[in-house]
């Protein structure tokens, strides 16, 4: 239920060194998997994470399809294990530090600039910045953020004990976090744009069979309304055109993700949604720069896939670094 573990972060930073073989920007599953492989290979590795290590996976209440955990595992616990494993092999993890710029200098040297004006140097950099929950850009969405509107049920769910909440989006994330919310809230109403849910069947069963859940399919949310706090969502039945207002105290938005790549400017090639294009070995096309995990184009937002990316990149990195030495 609760545990007591120490983030590396808040108290201790990196070793104070500013030169590394490999810097991984982002401490989610792909970044940590790459760090485990690289550090175990003796590659001097630093992971820089802008909040606590673990990425989006750590804010997932429960992960049931990561192999090796037959009963499932809390996302934060799984990521804690990843982190421990990376640290055990000597990877350094710097948390609560945001990377603001990557500066390729020459072959074998890239500089990584951070928000607190630190500069780290590496021979190779992996972008593992992942993605963040997408906004719907609805009227009221910005206004009521933190005032009843949330993108993190794991963080804010406990504040909605005994309340009526709405989840916008009935895909995998929406239903997974909906299960979590159903354990706190009095009722959870799911609103989905499509006429059906694209989520895994097991999640659909769990939420739809729950006595405190209600589903509206084929409905479009038009507005988040409120006074000081959220009081209602306005939605439209896409079949009939009927508009109705649904009173609620909380709104959780799970309508997919967008990549965290703005800070890169036009450094790397991206697709139209801002995801980074790579080859099968995770190279971006910029010398010494790779991209792994959810930030990479055509990825699947699964921990297993992120781990696979991190592994492939670490193996390619070993080869690259060995060649640099020659």
């Amino acid at each position: 239920m609760f545990d007591f573990k120490l983030s590396t972060d808040v108290s201790k930073g990196s070793s104070g060194s500013s030169r590394y073989d490999l810097i991984i920007v982002g401490g989610g599953p792909s970044g940590l998997a790459a760090a485990i492989y690289a550090a175990r290979d003796g590659i001097k590795t630093l992971v820089i994470e802008k909040s606590a290590a673990g990425g989006l996976a750590a804010t997932t209440d429960h992960i049931e399809n990561y192999p090796g955990f037959p009963e499932g595992i809390a996302g934060s616990d799984l990521m804690d294990l990843f982190q421990k494993q990376a640290v055990r092999f000597g990877a350094e993890i710097l948390e609560f530090e945001e990377v603001t710029r990557i500066e390729p200098v020459r072959k074998g040297l890239l500089r990584v600039h951070t928000a607190s004006d630190e500069v780290f140097e590496a021979k190779l950099v992996m972008l593992a910045t992942g993605s963040k929950p997408k906004k719907l850009n609805l009227p009221g969405e910005d206004e009521f953020y933190g005032r009843g509107l949330s993108y993190c049920a794991t963080c804010d769910g406990p504040l909605f004990r005994g309340k009526d909440v709405v989840v916008i989006g009935a895909g995998n994330s929406g239903l997974q976090e909906g299960v979590n919310l159903l354990s706190y809230a009095r009722s959870v109403t799911f609103i989905e744009f499509l006429p059906y849910s694209i989520a895994e069947k097991i999640l659909q069963e769990r939420t739809m069979n729950h006595p405190n859940s209600t589903f509206y399919f084929n409905h479009q949310v038009l507005e988040i309304k409120g006074d000081k706090m959220v009081t209602a969502v306005v939605m439209k039945d896409r079949a009939t055109g009927e508009v109705k207002e649904l009173p609620t105290e909380g709104v959780f938005i799970y309508v997919g993700y967008s990549p965290d790549t703005k800070f890169l400017g036009d450094l790397v090639e991206m697709n139209q949604w801002g995801y980074i294009k790579t080859d099968t070995q995770m190279w971006t096309g910029v010398e010494g720069l790779m991209a792994i995990g959810d930030v990479r184009a055509n990825n699947l937002a699964q921990v297993t896939v992120a781990v696979s990316d991190g592994t492939k990149a670490a193996l390619a990195a070993r080869e690259y670094l060995a060649k640099l030495e020659e």
């Binding site: 609760f2 909040s51 606590a52 673990g54 804010t59 993190c152 963080c155």
Partner: peptide, 12 residues
């Protein structure tokens, strides 16, 4: 909240 990974950064 104890389950919020962004919170310690604010608190410290």
């Amino acid at each position: 909240t104890p389950t919020c990974p962004y919170c310690p950064g604010a608190a410290v």
